[in-house]
């Protein structure tokens, strides 16, 4: 068995909630004792509906939020115990691609500034000067299927699919090992989604990345991921190899979810 890269160990998150007018406070349990582990080099899918706790879990992995209890371990290190300097180093190793490519690029920055910003922030670790950063930005753009001619353009000049490519280039800039993909294709048309999914496959093969892929689309997860976990109301209800979960779901929820999936049978290519 290969090495474990990311481990979520018994993580719970309770939101205190706003205190009401009469002092009663509602507790919201966003995550209940979630445990899962992601192996190096694999694609791990996390599937859940809205409000299931997917987002909270993602934010905990990125340390944008602190779990109420439990630990998030990256290569055996407890992320909650890291110093500020270690945390900076870690930020370069775990990167994220967000769902909405229209909202996740700063409209006032050029592609060059967007893609080089992570290298600028992590310049001590990466040791790249200004010219090298620009060179690497061009490399990254060609890696995601864009070119040097796009370097000094602004986000509004790109289509949704191209913007998502820019987001991927930015995420790859600091040389991460783990890429958190938060519904990266759900805002795109199916034809563009196919292009982005293929790009993700290719990048993983080339760069040996590990993916943590969050989605509500079971079809996409089945296509891209090796293993998956189903999360429902803050709890992991089922996890395992993609093939076995789809072929023989063990829980009622998994069966219902797979049953509700609208499917098209595609005829063999003409």
């Amino acid at each position: 068995m290969s090495e474990i890269m990311l481990e979520i160990d018994d993580v719970s998150k309770i939101y205190a909630g706003k205190r009401g007018m009469f002092g009663r406070s509602h507790m919201v349990e966003a995550l209940k004792h979630v445990s899962l582990s992601v192996r190096r080099g694999e694609s791990f899918g996390l599937v859940g509906e809205s409000g299931s706790g997917k987002t909270t879990l993602t934010r905990s992995i990125l340390q944008l939020e602190r779990p109420t209890s439990g630990r998030v371990l990256f290569e055996g290190m407890d992320l909650g115990q890291l110093s500020t300097a270690e945390m900076r180093w870690l930020r370069a190793r775990i990167q994220i691609v967000f769902q909405d490519p229209y909202a996740s690029l700063n409209p006032r920055m050029s592609v060059h500034d967007i893609v080089t910003e992570p290298m600028l922030i992590h310049r001590e670790t990466l040791g790249l000067n200004r010219r090298q950063r620009t060179e690497r930005a061009v490399e990254l753009l060609s890696l995601v299927g864009l070119g040097a001619q796009h370097l000094y353009r602004h986000p509004h000049e790109f289509s949704g699919g191209q913007r998502q490519r820019i987001c991927i280039a930015r995420a790859l800039a600091p040389g991460p090992d783990l890429l958190v993909l938060d519904e990266p294709t759900s805002a795109l048309d199916v034809s563009v989604q196919a292009q982005v999914l293929n790009l993700l496959c290719e990048l993983q093969d080339k760069l040996g990345l590990t993916y943590f892929f969050i989605s509500h689309d079971l079809g996409v997860v089945r296509y891209l991921c090796d293993r998956l976990a189903l999360i429902y109301r803050g709890e992991i209800v089922e996890q395992g190899d993609c093939a076995s979960v789809f072929d023989a779901p063990e829980t009622e929820y998994a069966r219902a979810l797979i049953g509700a999936m609208p499917e098209v049978k595609v005829p063999p290519a003409a």
Partner: peptide, 12 residues
């Protein structure tokens, strides 16, 4: 139709 991943679509 070919853009939609199905259970028989091989990775990549």
């Amino acid at each position: 139709m070919a853009s939609i991943p199905t259970r028989d679509t091989r990775r990549g």
